[in-house]
Amino acid sequence: MQDFVAAGALGALVGGAELASRYRDRPSALLGVASAWLYVLLNAAASSGVLWVVHVFGWRFGTASADQAAALQVLVSGLAALALFRSSLFTVRVGDQEVGVGPNLILAMLLGVADRGVDRMRAKDRSQQVTRVMRGVRFDKARVALPAFCLALLQNLPEQEQRDLAAAVEALGTSEMTDTQKSYALGLLLINIVGPEVLQSAVGALAEEISEPAPQAARTLPQSRTGTDSITA
């Protein structure tokens, strides 16, 4: 029984790590999405099922020691969800695309449901965060400096994601949206990569260069008293 628990836990860890990689700015948002839990449990069940098959056929993977065989069986079964849910039995052409039919189709469906659940739950919060952080930021001033500064704060961002961000910012620059709309959209692009805290810190550091100057309050000069006031003895 312990072997099945260990294999299931390893499979659940694999599924959870994959989901967390899709929502790197806030992985904790997955805790409130039922479809995310279902995906993790499905990975755990698949790993336990593979371990059952391994025990039925007595696969020892070439090891003579019973302890080594048990550990290797758990390890192989726990990681089997990676291969199982990404395999397709055959492909069919739908329009101009080839769609794989098999366990990977279940994976894609569950990930799609999880994506929609997380997006619906976080939409209001993300809107409030972006409008608060990016209020007053001029897109024409921030389109180069702010992404460059945010990316410099991160040390391990893949080059492909950097190129994708540059292409998205370039597309924003050529769109017909207003400067404020472009600024908020830029904030959404960056918050997906660096998170709200880093974005707020970067905007604060570059505030003088990328923000609109604050309107100066009109100063009211005190009116001088005229000589109409009479001096009474």
Rank of each mutant, 00 (worst) to 15 (best):
V54Q: 10
T63Y: 09
T63S: 06
A64I: 11
A66K: 02
A71T: 04
V74Y: 03
L75K: 08
L75D: 04
L75F: 15
V76E: 06
S77Q: 11
S77H: 11
G78A: 11
L79P: 05
L79S: 12
A81E: 07
A81R: 05
L82Y: 08
L84A: 05
F85H: 04
F85Q: 03
R86I: 01
S88Q: 14
L89Y: 06
T91N: 03
T91H: 07
T91V: 09
T91A: 11
V92I: 15
V92G: 01
V92L: 14
D96M: 08
Q97P: 04
V99I: 15
V101T: 05
G102S: 04
P103K: 00
P103Q: 02
L105I: 02
I106A: 15
L107M: 02
A108I: 05
A108F: 07
A108H: 03
M109G: 08
M109E: 02
M109I: 11
L111W: 11
G112W: 09
V113T: 00
A114D: 03
V118A: 10
V118W: 04
D119I: 06
R120T: 03
M121D: 08
M121C: 02
R122L: 10
A123S: 11
A123V: 01
K124N: 12
D125K: 07
R126Q: 13
R126L: 14
S127C: 11
S127H: 14
Q128V: 04
Q129R: 07
V130S: 05
V130T: 08
T131G: 07
T131C: 10
V133C: 05
V133K: 04
V137H: 12
R138I: 10
D140R: 12
K141P: 03
A142G: 11
A145C: 00
P147V: 00
A148V: 10
A148H: 09
A148F: 09
C150S: 14
C150P: 10
C150V: 13
A152R: 13
A152T: 07
A152Q: 14
L154S: 08
P158S: 03
E159N: 01
Q162M: 05
R163P: 01
R163V: 09
R163M: 06
D164E: 15
L165G: 00
A166Q: 02
A167K: 07
A168E: 12
V169C: 06
V169S: 08
E170G: 10
E170N: 07
A171P: 06
L172C: 01
L172E: 02
G173A: 09
G173Y: 09
T174V: 08
T174Q: 10
S175A: 08
S175D: 12
E176V: 03
E176Q: 13
E176P: 05
E176K: 13
E176L: 09
M177N: 09
M177R: 15
T178H: 10
D179S: 08
Q181M: 14
K182S: 04
A185N: 12
L189D: 06
L190E: 00
N192T: 01
